[in-house]
């Protein structure tokens, strides 16, 4: 019974509309990909250009965070509705991950 589903036949108009919408969404995905590639290029160029490490480190970390947010919200569809619980799971995981990293960095070498 767990695989039951109602069958709904789309009308021609509905079908064409959803097809158009998907094509538009896919164009958005390609834009997201272009931005991600661009950020990666900036990060690698900044390191290769040998700027001060106090400038580079925060910039490339920020680029990484933005890139991951794009990946999660667009490639993994977290921006679509019906994703509240997945967001909760992932952000709780990220929160505990952040605490772990903070602890290891401070407890071991700052004391």
């Amino acid at each position: 019974m767990s695989h039951d589903a109602q069958v709904y036949v789309k009308s021609e108009t509905e079908f064409n509309y959803i097809k158009q919408k998907r094509r538009k969404d896919m164009r958005g995905q390609i834009t997201t990909f272009a931005i991600m590639i661009f950020f990666t290029l900036i990060a690698f160029t900044a390191v290769a250009a040998d700027f001060s490490k106090y400038l580079i480190a925060p910039v490339i970390l920020l680029l990484a965070v933005v890139q991951v947010i794009l990946q999660l919200f667009y490639f993994m569809h977290m921006s679509e509705k019906n994703h509240n619980v997945p967001m909760y799971f992932l952000f709780v995981g990220a929160f505990f991950g952040f605490i772990t990293i903070l602890t290891f960095l401070t407890i071991i070498w700052w004391g």
């Binding site: 619980v85 505990f96 602890t103």
Partner: peptide, 26 residues
């Protein structure tokens, strides 16, 4: 169920990798 369960698993994976990152950084 698969959808929700898999996201819970990914939350757990986040913690796994964070602890490995923490170890590496230390």
């Amino acid at each position: 169920n698969k959808f929700l369960g898999f996201w819970l698993f990914l939350g757990g994976e986040t913690v796994l990798f964070a602890s490995l990152f923490a170890t590496y950084l230390a």
